[in-house]
Design a protein around this nucleic acid. Structure first.
Length: 421
RNA sequence: GGAGAGGUGGCCGAGUGGUCGAAGGCGCUCGCCUGCUAAGCGAGUAGGGGGUUCACAGCCCCCUCGAGGGUUCAAAUCCCUCCCUCUCCGCCA
């Protein structure tokens, strides 16, 4: 949710932001609806005030006087009920639209509406040159017997995979490697719930917009998270934090579940796009003045991790129209995939400013004694599945064996994945 | 799955129809005192919305004691529905 004051005092800012996202919303009508809500509510409150005052006198009155006053108060109560219902109805109508309004786009977010408009900020590392025909990760996975999507299809359907043997070990190495780095950087490690209540998804901005992407467990009224961002953000829901605890930084490890509805035919090879994968996620709660710096900090941590894994990548500033509802600005790190001869998304980090904090009511006690909304940010540290396949593809050799990046060797105890004899 | 208890302010915790947005305590803020620290004394301190306004200053109003509905002139207090938390038993990684 964005600040209502924007709609009231600077609707042109909202107009502009929506236009940058390529959305059409009748802002004038929204503003008018809001005005009518307030007008009606105000009239109702005035009636209520008179009714309450009269009620106080009734306690002290006797006889006829009392009876007359009660009759009058009764009429006021009726009137209040009527106006109040009218205001409720208008407000419902307003909220229905208002909750779908995405965050204001940051001035420095890239222009454009699709992935193709993402603005490249930098490239680091060179794509590997092979003197043989490189295999894609699915081929390598089969050859090395470390990824099995055929049997996964039998057991669970399409877009699932088994990590097997050294790839399974690689997962744990990556997770521990990332966690170690993050703890060093001041993050508190977390293993959060992956089943959450609806409010957590609404609060993080995934609902109502992306509802069809989320697995639901109707019998229990719970939902499977697509990222631990959801459970980490909601961790401090409804809280008023002391200012001095900010920034709060969490490193959450969780499995992520995504329905991938509407992606039929896209990325069907291997485990590039699956319904279930594990991820280490960074999440930060900051003072509003600190979120821009924090965003850059998260990005630099992501870059450090990718560099340490010796993967060639580029950083893009995501186009306004391609941002999620809650993000004001987002950076993606795209890593080179030799089989696709292109850079594909490996990590992503967003500054959601006060959008999630407003919905989740996460505030801090500010210096002046009042409360202010915090800012929240999230960023991928390691998306395990994709990182594994990036390692396979980039560090493969002619015989199909794969070299383990040096930084992971201490976690694994081997430096090569070879085809079984 | 069975049985029971309970949801009140930043936190703990009183409060069964009007004088309760709410005792008391903790915490916090300011001041005083104590030659440091600790203790002590005094005052203040819920959140949200709206109106007025140049104003995030004042002043005024409304809402909120888990949520929603109901009874009543009047509800934290009475009634109904739902949600949530905890305890014991059962099951269980």
């Amino acid at each position: 949710m964005i600040d209502l004051a924007i709609l009231r005092d600077n609707p042109e800012i909202l107009e502009k932001s929506l236009a940058r996202r390529g959305l059409t919303v009748d802002v004038a009508r929204l503003a008018d609806l809001d005005r009518r809500v307030r007008e009606t509510r105000h009239r109702a409150e005035q009636v209520r005030a008179r009714q309450k005052e009269l009620g106080k006198r009734i306690a002290r009155l006797q006889g006829t006087e009392k009876q007359e006053a009660i009759a009058e108060a009764s009429a006021l109560a009726e009137e209040f009920k009527r106006l109040s219902a009218e205001a409720d109805q208008l407000e419902t109508e307003f909220q229905e639209i208002w909750v779908t309004i995405p965050n204001l786009v940051d001035d420095t977010a890239a222009d454009g509406f699709t992935e193709a408009d993402n603005q490249e900020i930098k490239r680091v590392g060179d794509p590997p040159r092979f003197d043989f025909e490189p295999r894609d990760h699915a081929e390598l996975g089969t050859l090395l017997d470390v990824i099995d999507t055929d049997r996964a299809a039998k057991v669970s359907g399409s877009r699932f995979g088994y990590l097997k043997g050294k790839a399974a070990l690689l997962e744990f190495a990556l997770v521990r490697f990332a966690m170690d780095r993050l703890v060093e950087a001041g993050f508190t490690p977390m293993v959060p719930p992956v089943l959450v209540r609806e409010f957590a998804l609404f609060g993080t901005g995934f609902f109502p917009g992306d509802r069809e992407q989320v697995y639901e467990v109707p019998a229990d009224g719970l939902f499977l998270v697509g990222t631990s961002e959801v459970s980490l953000a909601a961790y401090h829901a409804e809280e008023i934090l002391p200012e001095e605890v900010l920034p709060i930084r969490y490193a959450g490890f969780s499995t992520c579940f995504r329905r991938e509805a509407g992606t039929y035919g896209r990325d069907t090879t291997g485990i590039f796009r699956v319904h279930q994968f594990d991820k280490v996620e960074m999440f930060a709660f900051t003072h509003p003045d600190a979120s821009r710096d924090e965003h850059e900090r998260l990005l630099s941590i992501e870059e450090d991790l990718v560099q340490t894994l010796e993967l060639p990548y580029r950083v893009v500033n995501v186009a306004a129209g391609d941002l999620g509802a809650s993000a004001a600005k987002k950076y993606d790190i795209e890593v080179w995939f030799p089989s696709q001869e292109t850079y594909r998304e490996l990590t992503s980090c967003s500054n959601t400013t006060d959008f999630q904090a407003r919905r989740l009511r996460i505030r801090f006690r500010a210096g002046h004694g009042g409360t202010e909304l915090v800012h929240t940010l999230n960023g991928t540290a390691i998306a395990v599945g994709r990182t594994i396949i990036a390692i396979l593809e980039n560090h493969q050799r002619a015989d199909g064996s794969v070299r383990i990046p040096e930084a992971l060797v201490p976690y694994l105890g081997f430096d090569l994945i070879e085809p079984p004899r």
